[in-house]
Design a protein around this nucleic acid. Sequence first.
DNA 1: TTGAAAGCGGTACCAT
DNA 2: ATGGTACCGCTTTCAA
Lengths: 349, 349
Amino acid sequence: MAVTLADVAARARVSAATVSRVLSGNYPVAESTRARVLRAVDELEYVVNGPASALAAATSDLVGVLVNDIADPFFGIIAGAVQAEMVTPAGESGRGGEKLAVICNTGGSPERELNYLTLLQRQRAAAVVLTGGAVEHPDHAAAVATKASRLAASGTRVVLCGRPPIEDATTLAFDNRGGARRLTEHLLTLGHRRIGYVAGPAERTTTRHRLEGHRAALAAAGVDQDAERLTVHGLYDRASGYDATLELLRRDRTLTAVVAANDTIALGVCAALRDQGLRIPEDVSVAGFDDLPFSADAVPALTTMRLPLHEAGARAGRLALGREPQPPGGVAMVRAELMARASTAPPRG
Amino acid sequence: MAVTLADVAARARVSAATVSRVLSGNYPVAESTRARVLRAVDELEYVVNGPASALAAATSDLVGVLVNDIADPFFGIIAGAVQAEMVTPAGESGRGGEKLAVICNTGGSPERELNYLTLLQRQRAAAVVLTGGAVEHPDHAAAVATKASRLAASGTRVVLCGRPPIEDATTLAFDNRGGARRLTEHLLTLGHRRIGYVAGPAERTTTRHRLEGHRAALAAAGVDQDAERLTVHGLYDRASGYDATLELLRRDRTLTAVVAANDTIALGVCAALRDQGLRIPEDVSVAGFDDLPFSADAVPALTTMRLPLHEAGARAGRLALGREPQPPGGVAMVRAELMARASTAPPRG
DNA sequence: TTGAAAGCGGTACCAT
DNA sequence: ATGGTACCGCTTTCAA
């Protein structure tokens, strides 16, 4: 039905082997035949059969990227950066040098995560990049580790981006704990003492680490007696931030600051505060995490920790392709940077 | 190296053919042997070789989703909805019924778009979903149409979501023109007469259609003499919205409203207005398009046209899988809904 | 209901 | 430098 290698070979009056060599460009071929082959390819509009070559070569040009929520720009930015690394640098042997980044949306579901890993294993993916916080349930963690080892064993590179290291994988770990700690320290330095915290889902590594950093800062300043009561858990979305804030205000109307586990939550926090007639930052200062592009527009007074998502994604992509040297020990820490805007305020009164 | 069908067959004491039948579930197999096979599969932790089966069956379980900018939630929402349709409804023949959605980020580049279409053709994708506005350059349009036909000819379903129809593809066209028209009509009804417009890149269908709708509304109200001068083009991002707004104010400081070609631009517009000391909506009303989740938080006073992105994506996914009947004529129009918030204001003075 | 065997379209080793 | 040719692992007639 479709044009095959053999058709091209016949037209170019060479063997299939030669055509294959021209196309993959990993073997010397006389310039004249090479030209003849390429012309035949063009004339016949030949397109390589991916599955066939993946089968024969025992490896495909797919790279899987797992994300928790593709509608969240946090993951969009990372995924986009990974994918951007997949295109061959200009000037290469133009033909088919690219990998195909497969972005898989797990929705944060452990089952779907494993499911996608299986799917990618089935596709004999060249690499898999797992992004974002991991679910901490022990069974699931073990299952993921097992799958990762199996993938690694079958030649698939495994890269983690934004979650704690596991064996057989290269890791770019985000400094969630340190970032959160410094964020809260910033508020403490401004004089805030009653600080609410809106956390993410309980069983996520990002949730736990950021909360730990926050608590550590409070403890160091000796103002952590109310920490438990001033923490509310929810999802990493706007609605949760909104609801959690109402709950926080119910528990303590005298809060002077609220820290959100990420910027999306922070937006909900701000909306709730506004609806309660509280001004930001005059009445309540708000801090977030990630510094997504719209954060500053949404709330000019928002203070956030900025993670270099684009760079992290790009690096993860290069690691997945084996284009960048492994970090020492297989683990690199990605630092977070404080974006304290001028309008962040000390507590009122 | 890896476990193969033959290994499973041997262990289950059946032929490879039988194992294949059990796994694909499209052929009667005795319950007893079926159980035996499945047990062998589990024991050996067998994972189907995707490329091999794609080669033999001449079709793969990949579905490509092309997006212009994966970091933009507009596309994230659509892509996520498409992907969500790929998982088999619970209760199905659990094993391997799922398709793998491949989200491809073109970055709005025509070359990359074609490139990805080739890549997907090479993978023998089961379907391809093209989302978002199309580039209008005639050569490129022709090239895309050709590729689409070729894909369709080789059994790949082609679905368009948010762009104008082409042959051999099923289309969900967004009502950009009508939506934009109604949006501007809303502002006119409030009494606005000097309305600025921040458009997207000139060669995009979405850009042109939305601008046409805006102009049509102005013309119908007889206030389009300044339309040309009050229109500034840019990219579909925040920075462009910011810069364009400064330019608009330079051209006419007495504007009472600004319409942005999408919500992301609208955020930049708002930021610029704020920085110029103008209040929203007291001094200048702002309207956007798409109503992304964060819009209302960012600017409570923002008026937008909401496109049902999630539903559109879900539907596109079902069309890609052949699970939903073709719309009559192969083209369905997706309506936009006006989200006029209470705080939208009539012009000052 | 099950098995045998011929491909599917490349790849890569071995010759020439 | 080029050709011949065994596979790669699964699907799918065709027979039994």
